[in-house]
Measured scan of single mutants.
Amino acid sequence: DETGKELVLVLYDYQEKSPREVTIKKGDILTLLNSTNKDWWKIEVNDRQGFVPAAYLKKLD
C-alpha cells in the first residue's frame, strides 16, 4: 500500500559508510520513511531501511 508514502529522487550516488546507512544511486526514486532530522533522512532501498544525507535527496510532489 503506497498511499501516503512520500517519494524522493536521488540526486547523487552515495555509498553507505555504516550499517545504519544504505547505498543509493543517482536517478533512483525511493520511499521516504522519515525526514524529521534535517541532515539525515531514513529511506527504503530494496527492502532495506537506512539513512542517507538529506542533501542527496529531493522530495517529489
Results as ranks from 00 to 15, higher is better:
residue 1 D to K: 12
residue 1 D to E: 12
residue 1 D to M: 12
residue 1 D to L: 14
residue 1 D to Q: 13
residue 1 D to F: 13
residue 1 D to I: 13
residue 1 D to H: 13
residue 1 D to A: 11
residue 2 E to S: 15
residue 2 E to P: 12
residue 2 E to T: 14
residue 2 E to M: 14
residue 2 E to Y: 12
residue 3 T to Y: 14
residue 3 T to P: 13
residue 3 T to R: 12
residue 3 T to V: 13
residue 3 T to N: 13
residue 3 T to H: 14
residue 3 T to W: 13
residue 4 G to I: 14
residue 4 G to Y: 13
residue 4 G to M: 14
residue 4 G to E: 13
residue 4 G to F: 14
residue 4 G to W: 13
residue 4 G to N: 12
residue 5 K to C: 12
residue 5 K to N: 10
residue 5 K to A: 09
residue 5 K to V: 13
residue 5 K to S: 10
residue 6 E to P: 08
residue 6 E to S: 14
residue 6 E to G: 12
residue 6 E to N: 11
residue 6 E to K: 11
residue 6 E to M: 14
residue 6 E to T: 15
residue 6 E to W: 11
residue 6 E to I: 14
residue 7 L to G: 03
residue 7 L to V: 08
residue 7 L to N: 05
residue 7 L to T: 09
residue 8 V to D: 00
residue 8 V to C: 09
residue 8 V to F: 05
residue 8 V to N: 00
residue 8 V to Q: 01
residue 8 V to G: 02
residue 9 L to R: 06
residue 9 L to M: 09
residue 9 L to P: 00
residue 9 L to T: 04
residue 9 L to S: 04
residue 9 L to F: 07
residue 10 V to S: 04
residue 10 V to I: 03
residue 10 V to M: 01
residue 11 L to P: 00
residue 11 L to M: 08
residue 11 L to D: 01
residue 11 L to W: 03
residue 11 L to C: 06
residue 11 L to Q: 04
residue 12 Y to C: 14
residue 12 Y to L: 10
residue 12 Y to W: 12
residue 12 Y to R: 15
residue 12 Y to Q: 14
residue 12 Y to H: 15
residue 12 Y to N: 10
residue 13 D to P: 06
residue 13 D to Q: 03
residue 13 D to S: 09
residue 13 D to M: 03
residue 14 Y to P: 01
residue 14 Y to R: 05
residue 14 Y to W: 08
residue 14 Y to F: 06
residue 14 Y to E: 01
residue 14 Y to K: 01
residue 14 Y to H: 04
residue 14 Y to G: 00
residue 14 Y to S: 01
residue 15 Q to M: 13
residue 15 Q to E: 15
residue 15 Q to C: 10
residue 15 Q to D: 12
residue 16 E to Q: 11
residue 16 E to V: 07
residue 16 E to D: 05
residue 16 E to T: 07
residue 16 E to M: 11
residue 16 E to W: 06
residue 16 E to S: 14
residue 17 K to L: 09
residue 17 K to Q: 15
residue 17 K to H: 08
residue 17 K to R: 14
residue 17 K to S: 09
residue 17 K to D: 06
residue 17 K to P: 04
residue 18 S to Q: 09
residue 18 S to H: 10
residue 18 S to I: 05
residue 18 S to E: 09
residue 18 S to D: 11
residue 18 S to C: 09
residue 18 S to T: 12
residue 19 P to Q: 09
residue 19 P to S: 11
residue 19 P to K: 09
residue 19 P to D: 13
residue 19 P to F: 07
residue 19 P to W: 07
residue 20 R to S: 11
residue 20 R to L: 14
residue 20 R to Y: 13
residue 20 R to W: 15
residue 20 R to G: 15
residue 20 R to N: 14
residue 20 R to H: 14
residue 20 R to E: 11
residue 21 E to A: 05
residue 21 E to H: 05
residue 21 E to L: 04
residue 21 E to R: 04
residue 22 V to T: 04
residue 22 V to H: 03
residue 22 V to Y: 02
residue 22 V to S: 03
residue 22 V to A: 09
residue 22 V to M: 07
residue 22 V to K: 02
residue 23 T to H: 03
residue 23 T to N: 05
residue 23 T to Q: 04
residue 23 T to F: 03
residue 23 T to Y: 02
residue 23 T to M: 03
residue 23 T to V: 03
residue 24 I to L: 05
residue 24 I to C: 08
residue 24 I to Y: 03
residue 24 I to W: 01
residue 24 I to E: 00
residue 24 I to F: 02
residue 25 K to T: 10
residue 25 K to F: 13
residue 25 K to L: 07
residue 25 K to A: 08
residue 25 K to E: 06
residue 26 K to A: 14
residue 26 K to G: 06
residue 26 K to D: 03
residue 26 K to W: 04
residue 26 K to F: 05
residue 26 K to N: 06
residue 27 G to Q: 02
residue 27 G to D: 06
residue 27 G to I: 01
residue 27 G to L: 02
residue 28 D to C: 09
residue 28 D to T: 12
residue 28 D to Q: 15
residue 28 D to R: 05
residue 28 D to E: 15
residue 29 I to C: 06
residue 29 I to D: 00
residue 29 I to K: 05
residue 29 I to S: 02
residue 29 I to Y: 05
residue 29 I to V: 12
residue 30 L to S: 03
residue 30 L to I: 09
residue 30 L to D: 01
residue 30 L to T: 04
residue 30 L to P: 03
residue 30 L to M: 05
residue 31 T to L: 15
residue 31 T to F: 11
residue 31 T to K: 13
residue 31 T to V: 15
residue 31 T to Q: 13
residue 31 T to M: 12
residue 31 T to I: 15
residue 32 L to E: 00
residue 32 L to I: 05
residue 32 L to Q: 00
residue 32 L to H: 01
residue 32 L to K: 01
residue 33 L to P: 00
residue 33 L to Q: 04
residue 33 L to R: 04
residue 33 L to Y: 04
residue 33 L to F: 04
residue 33 L to M: 08
residue 33 L to V: 10
residue 34 N to E: 15
residue 34 N to A: 09
residue 34 N to W: 06
residue 34 N to M: 08
residue 34 N to C: 11
residue 34 N to Y: 06
residue 34 N to R: 06
residue 35 S to I: 04
residue 35 S to G: 11
residue 35 S to H: 12
residue 35 S to R: 08
residue 35 S to Y: 07
residue 35 S to V: 06
residue 35 S to F: 06
residue 35 S to Q: 09
residue 36 T to M: 10
residue 36 T to S: 13
residue 36 T to W: 07
residue 36 T to G: 09
residue 36 T to Q: 13
residue 37 N to K: 06
residue 37 N to I: 04
residue 37 N to Y: 08
residue 38 K to E: 14
residue 38 K to V: 09
residue 38 K to P: 15
residue 38 K to I: 10
residue 38 K to D: 09
residue 39 D to S: 09
residue 39 D to E: 12
residue 39 D to V: 11
residue 39 D to N: 11
residue 39 D to H: 15
residue 39 D to M: 14
residue 39 D to T: 13
residue 40 W to V: 03
residue 40 W to C: 06
residue 40 W to K: 02
residue 40 W to G: 01
residue 40 W to I: 03
residue 40 W to Y: 06
residue 40 W to L: 04
residue 40 W to D: 01
residue 40 W to T: 02
residue 41 W to L: 02
residue 41 W to E: 00
residue 41 W to I: 02
residue 41 W to G: 00
residue 41 W to F: 04
residue 41 W to Y: 05
residue 41 W to N: 01
residue 41 W to A: 03
residue 41 W to C: 01
residue 42 K to Y: 15
residue 42 K to R: 10
residue 42 K to N: 06
residue 42 K to D: 02
residue 42 K to V: 13
residue 42 K to S: 06
residue 42 K to P: 01
residue 42 K to W: 11
residue 42 K to H: 09
residue 43 I to S: 00
residue 43 I to V: 15
residue 43 I to H: 00
residue 43 I to Q: 00
residue 43 I to E: 00
residue 43 I to D: 00
residue 44 E to W: 06
residue 44 E to F: 06
residue 44 E to G: 06
residue 44 E to N: 05
residue 44 E to T: 07
residue 44 E to V: 10
residue 44 E to A: 10
residue 45 V to W: 08
residue 45 V to D: 08
residue 45 V to S: 10
residue 45 V to K: 15
residue 45 V to G: 07
residue 45 V to C: 11
residue 45 V to N: 07
residue 45 V to M: 10
residue 46 N to W: 09
residue 46 N to I: 10
residue 46 N to R: 12
residue 46 N to G: 15
residue 46 N to A: 14
residue 46 N to T: 09
residue 46 N to M: 15
residue 46 N to Y: 13
residue 46 N to F: 13
residue 47 D to K: 10
residue 47 D to Y: 09
residue 47 D to P: 03
residue 47 D to T: 10
residue 47 D to R: 09
residue 47 D to V: 06
residue 48 R to M: 07
residue 48 R to I: 08
residue 48 R to C: 05
residue 48 R to H: 07
residue 48 R to T: 07
residue 48 R to S: 06
residue 49 Q to T: 12
residue 49 Q to G: 05
residue 49 Q to W: 08
residue 49 Q to S: 11
residue 49 Q to F: 07
residue 50 G to M: 07
residue 50 G to D: 01
residue 50 G to L: 07
residue 50 G to V: 09
residue 50 G to Y: 08
residue 50 G to P: 01
residue 50 G to Q: 04
residue 51 F to H: 05
residue 51 F to Y: 15
residue 51 F to S: 03
residue 51 F to W: 15
residue 51 F to L: 08
residue 51 F to D: 04
residue 51 F to Q: 04
residue 52 V to N: 00
residue 52 V to D: 01
residue 52 V to H: 00
residue 52 V to F: 01
residue 52 V to E: 00
residue 52 V to K: 00
residue 52 V to C: 05
residue 52 V to Y: 01
residue 52 V to Q: 00
residue 53 P to V: 02
residue 53 P to G: 01
residue 53 P to A: 02
residue 53 P to W: 03
residue 54 A to D: 02
residue 54 A to C: 06
residue 54 A to L: 02
residue 54 A to M: 04
residue 54 A to T: 05
residue 54 A to N: 03
residue 55 A to G: 10
residue 55 A to Y: 10
residue 55 A to C: 15
residue 55 A to W: 11
residue 55 A to E: 12
residue 55 A to F: 11
residue 55 A to M: 11
residue 55 A to H: 13
residue 56 Y to K: 06
residue 56 Y to P: 01
residue 56 Y to Q: 05
residue 56 Y to T: 10
residue 56 Y to H: 15
residue 57 L to F: 02
residue 57 L to D: 01
residue 57 L to A: 01
residue 58 K to C: 14
residue 58 K to D: 07
residue 58 K to H: 08
residue 58 K to S: 09
residue 58 K to Q: 12
residue 58 K to L: 12
residue 59 K to E: 05
residue 59 K to T: 07
residue 59 K to C: 07
residue 59 K to L: 12
residue 59 K to H: 07
residue 59 K to P: 08
residue 59 K to W: 07
residue 59 K to A: 07
residue 59 K to D: 03
residue 60 L to G: 03
residue 60 L to P: 03
residue 60 L to S: 04
residue 60 L to M: 09
residue 60 L to D: 03
residue 60 L to K: 03
residue 60 L to V: 11
residue 61 D to E: 12
residue 61 D to K: 12
residue 61 D to N: 14
residue 61 D to Y: 09
